[in-house]
């Protein structure tokens, strides 16, 4: 019985860490611009697909991964310059539509550059499961959990202890005031898109050995990552991870103990309940209406 419980927990944490990693990207962009980037899932996809394709060209794995992150970062940067920058004064909803358009565009592009098949990225430290009190764990899960932990720590340091990070936060709170104290808000937006694309790519690469990668992989992962970011409280990287874990564990235990058919539905019911009782998510800052 305990072994089963542990197995469900392991599955929940693995999946939750995946959602959390994807959710981080949402948080970073939201922090800088109050925009929800619906193309975040596509960054995840590009990271995974690009590393698979670099690998198949015979480039060694570590280099392939670095190249994939660089490529995705560049895509994020380009997205900001060509699509977000010219629309900077648009309403939030119209910015959302732009990111949705970008997501369709990037998926279409990926189908042309790569293919419509699904691909595996070799696990970083082999496929032999680790046994734990009767439960089993894929070594790659440790990479995902560790990766999520390290990234969230780095982000925390970045936002709280670096000038650039603080500038991003300042831009989010009040762009005009930020500009007045000499922050180049345009530059800040570009950096945050590039950063969040890099985070998405890293998530996509860490996850690919478990979830595989294909041009549509970002659709569902993006959606679940969005859930993670919202449940945790938008704009809070720590919250995104916590939100991801909450969603992932809820899914795994529902599948294990209640009904696997309705596991996704149960996860969403929980999300809605969380929002009703904690309207700004688990760790979000309370929004106050400005007059």
């Amino acid at each position: 019985m305990f072994a089963d419980f542990l197995q469900f927990l392991i599955s929940g944490i693995t999946v939750g860490a995946i959602y959390g990693l994807v959710g981080l990207g949402f948080s970073v962009i939201y922090n800088a611009s109050n925009v929800i980037n619906f193309a975040q899932g596509e960054f995840v996809m590009i990271g995974g697909m690009a590393s698979v394709s670099f690998l198949s060209m015979g480039i060694p794995m570590p280099l392939a991964i670095v190249l994939a992150v660089v490529v995705t970062t560049f895509v994020g940067f380009a997205l900001e310059i060509f699509a977000i920058e010219p629309a900077r004064h648009n309403s939030v909803v119209s910015l959302i539509i732009i990111t949705i358009g970008a997501s369709i565009f990037l998926r279409g592009l990926a189908q042309i550059i790569w293919d419509r098949n699904y691909h595996n990225l070799p696990a970083f430290s082999g496929d032999d499961p680790i046994k734990l009190w009767g439960a089993a764990l894929q070594p790659q899960s440790l990479w995902v959990m560790g990766g999520a932990g390290i990234i969230v720590l780095l982000l925390w340091l970045f936002f709280n202890h670096s000038i650039l990070g603080k500038a991003i936060l300042a831009t989010s709170f009040n762009p005009l005031a930020a500009e007045l104290v000499g922050i180049d808000t345009r530059r800040i937006l570009q950096i945050s898109f590039a950063l969040s694309a890099a985070l998405g790519a890293i998530a996509g690469i860490l996850v690919a050995p478990i979830a595989l990668t294909y041009t549509n992989v970002g659709v569902m992962l993006g959606l679940k990552g969005f859930c993670a970011a919202i449940v945790g409280g938008l704009g809070n990287p720590m919250g995104a991870i916590a939100g991801g874990l909450a969603v992932g564990i809820a899914e795994a235990f529902t599948a294990g103990y209640i009904s696997s058919a309705y596991k996704d539905a149960v996860a969403f019911v929980i999300i809605i309940l969380v929002l009703l009782f904690l309207p700004s998510g688990l760790f979000g800052r309370k929004e106050i209406d400005k007059v």
Partner: peptide
């Protein structure tokens, strides 16, 4: 798909 996405972005921009 690419054109569809580009049109959406273009109109909104």
């Amino acid at each position: 798909m690419m054109v569809h996405g580009a049109v959406l972005m273009g109109v909104m921009i």
